[in-house]
Design a binder for these strands. Structure first.
Lengths: 248, 248
DNA sequence: CATTTAATGTGTAAAATTAACACATTATTG
DNA sequence: CAATAATGTGTTAATTTTACACATTAAATG
């Protein structure tokens, strides 16, 4: 086989380039990054989480959180919003980053670091939209194990929700715009897993005056109907202040 | 220039390979991942943070947090520990993940997502070890801006520390093993940026009985010396319980 | 239409926690 | 030995949290 000197040089350069590319690819130290969403809802007086049937053989039959790889030119929050939008059709939902999980063996396909968000949505709003029968609402209290490390992720997210809901008015995000005080109390009781005193609960919420009496009553309840309220976020914004103390 | 058919084929194959590599590199969807450490210390009655002079031209003269890329086969916590160990020589230090920052433009060299940890260390222990004069302890309250998005990261970490220190006995990590109640109170006052009543503070800490009177006194203070105490973590573990309530 | 049912709506008193406050004591310094 | 600059200690008022019971209302039932 004949080959000119020029060509040889050219090939040598290509090989050199290839090896440069290879070493660069190795040196970039990049890692697959995903976002997982813990989507909480509230229905039948229970805290729920939206899960999807795992598509991996290894986890056949198990449920998992909703997640996807982050695109290299996509913001993390945007990835979380995208996943939520794709699965539920919902926009403008309360979301918060929880934690990043990066165990080496957490994903069978190799190293995948995942940034976890939880979100709170009003189940009524999109009950009809969940047509995909691979998706299902589960009682948080009844989940035993999940695919990947998703049980651990769920536990961590649930604990964060429990802490946050005691310090910020998040519970409203799980309810329709109009709600009764009983429904609000049910949300707190479900999330915190405690029974509360109705009178003290009402007193507390009326004292912080961001519940707006809209002069409507519950409909279609088999007993005396309760008044309905809205949550006024502006009033909360004005009132909120930091408390400082030691409590452990 | 002469080139044989064989050679042409060969080059075509190489080009094909190159393009395959390129598309594979694009498809792996990987992202550079770093860990940044917000290292808090306490000295001169002030909360401090350990910073390093930025080595990037863009941020010349600015200070930045200590961080490094995560190795593809390295745990996130391990990366944080490694960074701390490399810079301070310390092991077994209190550390907690704060949040992950992933803004597209946060790093001039391209997309780098960073997982942030804060840690609490006792400055006395390693004052001598900070020989690297690119490293320096800064008053947290006096930091105006930092390289990258590190000011934002610091603010977020500081807020998390303020929340955590009110609910968990972290402050002890910033003090030597033996400390006086005044020093302990100074830590809380510095972190929370408030003045506290000495008698109520003492009452509170004696009530939770995990302070151990070691029957020693402060030395070399220009006034009446205070008693020294140890913190007994075991007693804390036994007592801790979740408080449930609504407070916002 | 009267009765039953299953909730809503409301106030007060006790208990626990937090906040406010002052003076004698002690080692060091000059 | 006087002056200094801190430590160490208890009580009371104010606030917050908890515990607790009965009349009211609309719907459902017979």
């Amino acid at each position: 086989m004949h080959m000119s000197k020029t060509t040889q040089t050219s090939q040598a350069q290509i090989i050199k380039s290839l090896s440069a590319i290879q070493s660069e690819v190795e040196s970039i130290n990049r890692i697959a990054l995903s976002v997982d969403c813990v989507i909480f809802g509230f229905d039948e007086n229970k805290l729920k989480v939206l899960l999807i049937r795992s598509d991996l053989k290894k986890f056949q039959g198990k449920w998992s959180l909703l997640g996807d790889l982050v695109d290299p030119d996509e913001e993390l929050d945007a990835a979380a919003s995208r996943i939520l939008k794709q699965r539920t059709g919902l926009d403008n939902v309360y979301m918060e980053q929880v934690k990043t999980f990066g165990c080496l063996n957490r994903h069978p396909a190799g190293r995948v670091v995942t940034v976890v968000y939880y979100s709170l949505i009003n189940i009524q709003n999109h009950k009809l939209k969940i047509l995909d029968n691979e998706l299902h609402w589960h009682d948080v209290s009844e989940i035993e194990d999940l695919a990947f490390d998703h049980k651990q992720i769920l536990d961590c997210s649930y604990e964060q929700l429990q802490r946050r809901v005691q310090e910020h008015p998040l519970a409203f995000s799980l309810l329709p715009k109009k709600f009764s005080l009983r429904e609000l109390q049910n949300v707190y009781e479900a999330i915190l897993n405690v029974k509360m005193d109705r009178r003290n609960f009402r007193k507390k919420f009326f004292a912080m005056d961001f519940l707006v009496d809209i002069d409507e009553m519950e409909q279609d309840v088999p007993h005396r109907p309760g008044k309905l309220y809205n949550f006024n976020y502006n009033k909360y914004e004005k009132k909120k202040k930091k408390w400082v103390g030691i409590d452990f």
